[in-house]
Design a protein around this nucleic acid. Structure first.
Lengths: 219, 219
DNA sequence: TTTAATTAGTTGCAAACATAAACTAAGTGG
DNA sequence: CCACTTAGTTTATGTTTGCAACTAATTAAA
């Protein structure tokens, strides 16, 4: 019943080149100083109101990421995951459109299928986050948080298809988006510059900026 | 960044009188000594392999509860939920058939709709567990873990209806159970003693004893 | 021993829903 | 102004769902 090391980590995911990518941060402290790892740190008991607050604080260091979709992924624990001793990590995952992410020397986007040498159990954590995102994408509005606003329905469909790994029926997809009721057409705004018919531009209704709409049936 | 109090709590749920009931334990220590609360305690860093292991240890104290369905619910945290200071509780929920639960002076079943005076944020935790169970019941095999084996399909349907709070269509329900593919008929075993046609008895296939089968569509 | 009552389990059909293909709409570039 | 491309809708077809009515198997009572 000795000391438990207690930290908060964040899996910041985005979609770039039709693939999930995770933001990794170069560690400034031991253990694993200088290695790319999930951003995170200790809870600040003097200023954090809870672990979610701590996760938001971790994210605020990243320029461009203001108030992303954020959800608790789960808590990972054990005696060996951290060389300092028996540890717990409360993990949150965040989704942001890739246009909002600015990479830096100490903040790098990596494809989630190509993660080598991650310290701690961070590879397992990223895998769990991807599974959660892909699973929720199949019956919810989750993917809208990966789409830079404003966006068209065909663009959003591409995002869904990238996450689900399968092509979707255009008519069904539009009907589902209509049922989820999270999007609002921007009056008079259409995509332009392409050699074809412009598409209606949409944005997420304010009430759904940080929430999920669930579908009874799969998308 | 001072000390964080780190505990594991368990929401042990069962279905009695067609209502979700939670097992509460009379606390033997401060704070709130003598009060009914969720069973739980500190992580034993010398013997627990992770927090799930700690939750199972907490449950092993309860006679009759051997290897229930167990899933991490989430982690609850903050400066005020525990009078001792900034604390984290990693919470698991377990489902067991009510026939396996033996109540005692220090272990009492309470209806989840009738919880007064729970210490810490345990009322909120129980509410979150119920929401999770009811939600998962709508598209998975979760409720089979609340049904004492062997059981009939009509009995299982009553369990689903109690959790979902609405009557289900008999034909659809049987089709869904067939699709979930978690049950096996016990050859030659039928319910008896009732003044009507006996029903086939079923049990959960071994592979699904601690897992969930998910349905694309709602039950 | 028959009959009524009750619940288990199946069948058939109509309505609701999902999918694919074919269509119309609206832009760009030659 | 015509070919090409993608946006968005319509139509037809196939699949899923839910209700009602059916048959099946038991007990209790006449």
């Amino acid at each position: 019943m000795s000391e438990v090391i207690c930290t908060v980590d964040v899996v910041l995911l985005t979609l770039r080149d039709d693939a999930l990518q995770v933001l990794l941060h170069r560690r400034e402290r031991e253990p694993f100083v200088g290695t790319l790892a999930l951003p995170g740190g200790y809870v600040h008991t003097d200023s954090d109101r809870d672990t979610r607050d701590a996760a938001l604080r971790v994210l605020r260091d990243k320029p461009g990421v203001h108030s992303p979709y954020l959800e608790q992924l789960g808590t990972f624990s054990g005696p060996a995951r951290d060389p300092r001793g028996w540890s717990i990590s409360v993990v949150y995952y965040a989704l942001v459109p890739d246009t909002l992410i600015t990479e830096a020397a100490d903040a790098v986007l990596c494809s989630v299928d190509d993660l080598r040498g991650l310290p701690f159990d961070h590879a397992q954590i990223v895998a769990a986050a991807c599974e959660r995102v892909r699973n929720k994408s199949s019956y919810s509005s989750l993917p809208v948080h990966l789409c830079p606003a404003p966006f068209t329905l065909p663009q959003l469909q591409v995002v869904y298809e990238a996450l689900l790994g399968e092509p979707l029926n255009k008519v069904s997809f539009r009907r589902k988006m209509d049922e989820l009721d999270v999007l609002e057409a921007i009056p008079g705004a259409f995509s332009s510059g392409n050699a074809h018919r412009p598409a209606q531009l949409y944005q997420v209704k304010p009430a759904w900026r940080h929430a999920l709409s669930l579908s009874e049936r799969a998308i």
